[in-house]
Design a protein around this nucleic acid. Structure first.
Length: 479
RNA sequence: GGCGGCAUAGCCAAGUGGUAAGGCAGAGGUCUGCAAAACCUCUAUUCCCCAGUUCGAAUCUGGGUGCCGCCUCCA
């Protein structure tokens, strides 16, 4: 089996063959940091983070670059509204971004470059484009000349003539071609500006990704990702800039694009006002639940959002967590009759199937939804085994635990143990209290004082602690 | 107008030629003092509609309907 990836460039699945064996260079367009990210922004974070994890899990050394756009019109506008320095505002939201990303268990990229730190690279690239007659200067602005790059449109499948017919934008008369786009924008009074050969100004939106991807990954690399709405014009323009500049074909070998999150079947976007910030959602649901929800649908499919979907995701994830907990308990108890040989074989087979099925699913264009279903299959067998065998089977139980944990980790859904001192102390305290409560309740039950036993159980449920009576005793867990 | 995508049970969602995964919800049962969790059984003769190709189609072709996205900043 080998990994196959759907390539937007060509619109079909292709076998993944990196340019350099064993290594993957991956660039994903990151956020423009002028506000908190919303759920729609969260999808690519989780999706591409999961791809990266999978690539690493099958042995690739991945260089993952994700940029921050910290120089941009929206940032400038927002800063002016608030009377704040634009770069300071951008920096603040970069901080907020990391808080959200961590909640979603998104690992920091290998390199997270900012536009503000790459003006020199950007200016150099623009100079080269001007020199090669792919760009021209008008009153301190620099534009990329579309007609100078004949394959323009190859990613989005657009013909320039078609677009002119449907253009809804007022065309700047100074442009040589209506679709020409800005590489450098001259600063208006009061706007932040950087010196350049064409006068003070700032980079256009698209050039940053061309300059930074080349700096960190080279003129040609493996994977370039982003949301579907970036296909045109952003990625199309990136291709034009990079390939016109370098003369090399296919700056990225594989172009991957995630589908959109909709609300009531409508695209979630700030202009429609129908968005939820991730912060709002994280106030109601844990980050791992949001992550699970995002991975339970294939990354290219549209995903409709509402609260009930997250509640469903929470219950689904809970099922996996319960199963994993049963595994831990079975390994801890180790008492009683040895497990039956058939049962051991059945579980081992299930472990092997989960591993193979998971990999096959991920190999097919990162089919996380199918991969997750294999975890449920494994969970089912774990539940059957632990219910029917009291003790024994350490070897297979350990194998099940290892496989389960490893696969969950690829999805970024492994259980996280909090290891700061304060939490540790509180955990100890809680455990002490619960041991006492459990003992008192056990005494009540022994006396068949069901009223007291039930009052304790119901009362604890109110505060978020669930009690379950089992033949081996009562266990409790935070809901 | 151009380009692209989607339509599978009550809900979510896999599935590109071989006879419908998985989750949630629901029904019945086992277990339990009662619960919870877990387990067992059941819940789409059918995949938007029509026609065609094929021994065979949710999967391919043609037509139709509905919905969505991009073409302007947007993940």
């Amino acid at each position: 089996m080998s990994l196959r990836i759907y390539n937007t460039l060509g619109r079909k699945k292709e076998t993944f063959v990196p340019r350099n064996p064993g290594k993957v260079g991956m660039y994903v367009c990151g956020p423009t940091t002028y506000d908190l990210i919303h759920l729609g922004n969260a999808r690519p974070l989780v999706v591409f983070d999961t791809m990266r994890r999978y690539l690493e899990s099958i042995g690739y050394q991945v260089t993952y670059v994700q940029n921050f756009t910290d120089i941009d019109d929206k940032i400038i506008n927002r800063a002016q509204e608030r009377g704040e320095d634009p770069l300071a505002l951008a920096e603040r939201y970069i901080g907020e971004y990391f808080t959200d990303a961590a909640a979603l268990r998104v690992r920091p990229a290998t390199i997270q470059p900012k536009v503000s730190g790459h003006l020199q690279e950007i200016i150099t690239m623009i100079e080269q484009l001007v020199e090669k007659n792919h760009a021209y200067v008008v009153d301190g602005d620099v534009y990329f000349s579309i007609p100078s790059f004949p394959s323009y449109g190859k990613l989005s499948g657009r013909a320039m003539d078609d677009m002119i017919a449907g253009a809804r934008v007022d065309v700047d008369a100074r442009k040589g071609h209506p679709m020409d786009f800005a590489l450098w924008k001259a600063a208006k009074p009061g706007e932040p500006a950087w010196p350049s050969p064409w006068g003070p100004g700032r980079p256009g939106w698209h050039i940053e990704c061309s300059a930074m991807s080349e700096k960190y990954l080279g003129q040609q690399f493996d994977i370039h990702g982003g949301g579907q709405d970036l296909i045109f014009p952003h990625h199309e323009n990136e291709i034009a800039q990079s390939e016109a500049c370098s003369g090399a074909e296919n700056m990225a070998k594989y172009w991957l694009h995630n589908g959109f999150i909709t609300i009531n079947q409508e695209k979630m976007s700030k202009s429609l006002g129908n968005f939820f910030t991730l912060r709002q959602i994280l106030a109601k649901f844990p980050g791992d639940v949001v992550r699970y929800y995002l991975l339970a649908t294939h990354y290219r499919s549209p995903l409709d959002f509402d609260d009930t979907k997250l509640a469903t995701a929470q219950r689904s994830l809970q099922r996996l967590r319960t199963s994993r907990r049963l595994l831990t308990e079975a390994l801890a108890s180790g008492q009683g009759a040895p497990a039956k040989e058939e049962a051991i074989q059945a579980l081992q087979q299930s472990v092997d199937q989960a591993q193979a099925g998971f990999q096959a699913a991920m190999d097919d264009d990162f089919n996380t939804a199918l991969a997750i279903s294999h975890l449920f299959d494994l969970a089912k067998e774990i539940n059957v085994f632990t219910q029917q065998n009291q003790g024994g089977g350490e070897t297979v139980l350990t194998a099940a635990a290892e496989t389960f944990d490893r696969l969950m980790q690829v999805l970024g859904l492994e259980e996280v143990t909090v290891d700061n001192v304060k939490d540790e102390q509180e955990t100890k305290l809680l455990e002490g209290v619960m041991a006492l409560v459990l003992r008192l309740r056990a005494e009540a039950r022994q006396k068949k004082d069901w009223a007291t036993a039930d009052a304790i159980r119901d009362g604890l449920k109110e505060v978020g602690i669930v009690m379950e009576d089992t033949p081996q005793g009562t266990r409790w867990l935070k809901a």
